[in-house]
Simulated assay, not measured.
Amino acid sequence: MNLATSRYVSSSLSLLCLLSSFALADEPATTLPSDEQLKREAAFVEMLSGATLIGHFTVTGNEPKGEPPRLRGERYDLVEVRKIDEQHWLFKARIRYGDHDVTIPMTLPVEWAGDTPVVVVDNLGFPGLGTYSARVLFHKDHYAGFWSGTDRGGHLFGTIERSKPADDNTTDE
């Protein structure tokens, strides 16, 4: 191999190594959740599993001019909430609103805004209910968000209620 060929091969190898390092830098890092994030996720499971979301939703755009949207009741009995993978969670829920009363397992994406979990749904179909997009956040004993369907949308909000254990015999004295 002559000197010119040797320099060409050396330059090519250097360029390939450089390009490889950039390609590797663009690969998503697979890191384990921090202890703090694991605590947040455990608190989210504890807050919602076995809880009932009781609140209201609105349908915006149909109200008379100058009138606020009418509040309609909703109720979600969350049998179980658990993490499936890095971003998806299983919500087993009984959903009651209007004349609907169905129990379905739902795999929903959950993102985190700091320490606040947010369900982020885009055009997701729910059997018997329709296709929806939504952003719903959970904080302390409340939930709030925005929803939209095929031809309407609105707000939703309410409280997260947990039933007291049956063997709780404490009294206030």
Rank of each mutant, 00 (worst) to 15 (best):
S20D: 11
A23P: 03
A23S: 14
E27C: 12
P28S: 07
A29R: 13
A29N: 06
T30A: 11
T31Q: 13
T31G: 05
L32A: 13
L32R: 08
P33Y: 08
P33I: 10
S34R: 08
D35T: 12
E36Q: 12
Q37R: 15
L38T: 06
E41D: 14
A42G: 06
A42H: 07
A43E: 13
F44I: 04
F44G: 01
E46M: 06
L48P: 04
L48V: 04
L48R: 03
L48I: 05
G50Y: 12
A51M: 09
A51G: 09
A51L: 08
T52K: 12
T52S: 14
L53G: 01
L53H: 02
I54P: 00
G55C: 05
H56P: 00
H56F: 09
F57R: 01
T60S: 11
P64G: 04
K65E: 14
G66N: 08
G66K: 05
R70Y: 10
R72C: 06
G73L: 13
G73Q: 13
E74D: 01
E74K: 02
R75D: 01
Y76D: 07
D77E: 14
V79S: 15
E80A: 11
E80R: 13
I84S: 02
D85S: 14
E86P: 00
E86M: 04
E86L: 07
W89H: 04
L90W: 03
F91N: 01
K92C: 06
A93H: 03
H100G: 00
D101R: 06
V102K: 12
V102C: 08
M106W: 02
M106K: 03
T107F: 00
L108P: 00
P109M: 10
E111S: 09
G114A: 03
D115M: 01
T116W: 02
T116R: 13
P117Q: 06
V119Y: 08
V119A: 15
V120I: 10
V121Y: 01
D122N: 15
D122S: 14
D122A: 13
N123V: 02
P127Y: 02
G128H: 02
S133V: 04
A134C: 04
V136P: 01
L137N: 05
L137T: 02
L137G: 06
L137K: 06
F138C: 05
D141R: 10
Y143D: 05
A144Y: 09
F146T: 08
F146D: 05
W147D: 01
S148A: 15
G149Q: 05
T150G: 07
D151Y: 02
G153N: 07
G153E: 05
H155T: 14
H155A: 15
H155C: 09
H155I: 07
L156S: 08
T159I: 13
